[in-house]
Simulated assay, not measured.
Amino acid sequence: MVWLEIVGWAGSLLVIVSLTQARVLRFRVLNLAGAVIATAYNAIVGIWPFAVMNGVIAVIDVYWLFRLHRERHDAQVYGVLEVPADDSVLRHLLDTHAPDIARFHPAFAAGSSDPAGSAAFVVVRGDELVGAVVVRSAGDGVGRVDLDYVTPRYRDFTPGEFVYRDSGVFAAHGFRRLVVDSPSPESRAYLERVGFRSTADGWEREVLAAA
Results as ranks from 00 to 15, higher is better:
97 H>D: 15
64 W>E: 03
82 E>Y: 00
201 D>Q: 15
63 Y>C: 07
153 R>C: 08
122 V>D: 00
84 P>Y: 02
152 P>Y: 08
1 M>G: 14
198 S>I: 05
208 L>P: 01
76 Q>T: 14
163 V>H: 01
123 V>Y: 12
127 D>P: 03
134 V>D: 15
3 W>F: 12
205 R>S: 01
54 N>Q: 04
1 M>N: 10
23 R>L: 10
131 G>N: 09
128 E>P: 01
15 V>L: 15
185 P>I: 08
198 S>A: 15
33 A>T: 01
178 L>P: 06
159 P>R: 07
31 N>K: 01
205 R>A: 04
174 G>K: 02
111 G>T: 03
47 I>K: 01
141 G>F: 03
151 T>A: 11
130 V>R: 05
2 V>L: 14
134 V>P: 15
65 L>A: 10
95 D>R: 09
15 V>Y: 14
148 D>V: 02
51 A>N: 03
58 A>R: 05
12 S>N: 14
189 A>G: 14
79 G>C: 06
178 L>T: 06
159 P>F: 04
147 L>F: 14
140 D>E: 13
81 L>G: 07
128 E>N: 05
142 V>M: 10
148 D>F: 13
25 L>S: 09
127 D>I: 03
157 F>Y: 13
5 E>V: 02
64 W>V: 00
44 I>K: 00
32 L>M: 12
205 R>M: 09
106 P>I: 09
87 D>F: 00
2 V>E: 15
38 A>C: 14
149 Y>D: 06
202 G>A: 10
197 R>G: 06
59 V>N: 01
154 Y>E: 14
72 R>H: 07
4 L>H: 08
106 P>E: 11
114 D>K: 05
116 A>W: 10
141 G>W: 00
170 F>G: 00
69 H>R: 12
51 A>W: 11
8 G>K: 03
20 T>N: 09
188 R>C: 09
152 P>H: 03
107 A>T: 14
83 V>C: 03
152 P>T: 04
83 V>Q: 02
31 N>H: 05
25 L>D: 11
105 H>A: 13
207 V>W: 07
191 L>S: 09
200 A>Q: 15
82 E>M: 08
70 R>G: 05
113 S>D: 12
211 A>M: 02
204 E>Y: 06
68 L>C: 05
25 L>K: 12
58 A>H: 05
55 G>M: 00
171 A>G: 01
46 G>F: 02
92 H>Y: 04
150 V>K: 00
164 Y>G: 09
161 E>Q: 15
154 Y>V: 12
22 A>R: 15
80 V>W: 00
167 S>R: 03
31 N>Y: 10
